[in-house]
Design a protein around this nucleic acid. Structure first.
Lengths: 99, 99
DNA sequence: AAGATATATCGACTTTTCCCGATATATCTA
DNA sequence: TAGATATATCGGGAAAAGTCGATATATCTT
């Protein structure tokens, strides 16, 4: 895990928010077909909640995914994103030592 | 403490290194007149060790100081920088919850 | 007061990031 | 297969960050 890349990914208000929202998807997004806890939240929902264009949000989700902090599942025409809690934990551990 | 600003400050290899070096100044810098543990390390020493110009390092130290992660003391013509361990701890705590 | 030394600040240039709109791609449905 | 919908990617303009050299400022020494 490249620390600089992770910090860059976290250096943006919207991306930090997304990470927060995905912590408790049921609290932050309207009910879905899928189990949000299990599968995640689709791009459109995140796009609606963040007030930025679809392309920007898609890009931001890629940035976060590249760090490993979130992961995606494609189901039909939707891509669902959810946190990778293990990676988040590992990052915390990393920060514990590297900071 | 503005999270985005902190992460931006940490989004740079050199600044991360500086923060590391200042963790154990006696191990990372040649002996000085002053007690490095207590007072810190002067800009010139950090400048020599990081391979960037004096102005860049001075700027980077300001960036770090603005986050509160390091603090400075002027003694004569030297400015000494050292970690603010309390702030570093607080940041870790913040990350623990905000991440 | 003059010169030396350490640091900070300024102006400039380059690279990166932030966002957008437009378009491409994938999948679904009729 | 045609259209609809969801997402990804591409190209670009504006703003911010990275980095430098030159210069200003502060302090020390003589």
């Amino acid at each position: 895990m490249d620390q600089v890349e992770v910090f860059k990914a976290l250096s943006n208000k919207t991306r930090l928010m997304i990470l927060q929202w995905l912590k408790e998807p049921e609290l932050n997004f309207p009910p879905q077909e899928v189990d949000m806890k299990e599968v995640g939240v689709c791009v459109g929902q995140i796009h609606q909640k963040a007030q930025l264009t679809q392309s920007t949000i898609s890009e931001y989700l890629s940035v976060l995914q590249r760090t490993g902090l979130i992961e995606s599942t494609r189901i039909g025409q939707w891509t669902y994103y959810k946190r990778n809690e293990e990676a988040c934990q590992e990052l915390k551990r990393l920060l514990e030592t590297s900071l």
